[in-house]
Simulated assay, not measured.
Amino acid sequence: MEVHKELRMRCWIDIDGEKFFGPGRAQLLAHIDRQGSISKAAKAMGMSYKKAWSMVDDMNQKGQEPYVILHKGGNKGGGAALTETGKTILTAFNELMENLNEALRDGEEKILRLV
């Protein structure tokens, strides 16, 4: 019987002991950036608008600066966009995850042979 072994890692930022930013929120920001809308981003992720809005509000409140700016409705309708801070945190987090995953891949074979 063949056994499937996998080395996994989780990475997120805590503020005062509570999860603040990680892969899920990074994915949400990426969808908002592409879609220009919190509701479209939520739909793409299979989550409720309420949950997506709550996550955006939490990031905007707890971050040093807001990550997402909302555009009021009108002729063109409303929408959302990442601020420069939002774009910067998204890029930095994705680069960090890339580096961590590369390091993980480098050591994975060696460690899994021992398990």
Rank of each mutant, 00 (worst) to 15 (best):
D33W: 03
K5F: 12
I32S: 00
A26Y: 02
L29H: 01
N101V: 10
E2T: 13
A80S: 12
L96R: 05
Q27D: 11
R113K: 12
K19M: 10
K19G: 02
S37Q: 06
I15H: 01
D106W: 03
M45F: 06
H4S: 14
G63Q: 06
H71N: 12
G46M: 05
G78E: 07
A44F: 07
M55Y: 08
A41D: 02
D33I: 11
E84F: 04
T91G: 13
T91Q: 15
M47E: 09
G17R: 06
L104W: 04
L29G: 02
K87A: 10
K51T: 15
W12R: 12
L112K: 06
M9I: 15
K40A: 14
E6N: 11
D58M: 10
V115I: 14
K50W: 09
D14R: 04
V68D: 00
G24C: 04
E18G: 01
D14G: 03
L70N: 02
R8Q: 14
E95Q: 14
N94K: 10
M45Q: 09
E2N: 10
K110M: 13
E84D: 15
A30W: 02
G36S: 10
Q27A: 14
P23G: 14
S54D: 15
A80R: 02
C11K: 13
L7A: 15
I38D: 00
L100D: 10
G107H: 13
K76T: 12
L100M: 13
W53R: 12
I69M: 10
D57A: 15
L96Y: 03
D33E: 14
G46D: 08
K43G: 01
K72Y: 07
R34L: 11
M9C: 12
I32K: 00
G46A: 08
K50N: 15
R8S: 14
A52E: 07
G36M: 03
E65L: 12
V68N: 00
E108P: 03
F21A: 01
I32E: 00
L112Y: 03
L96E: 05
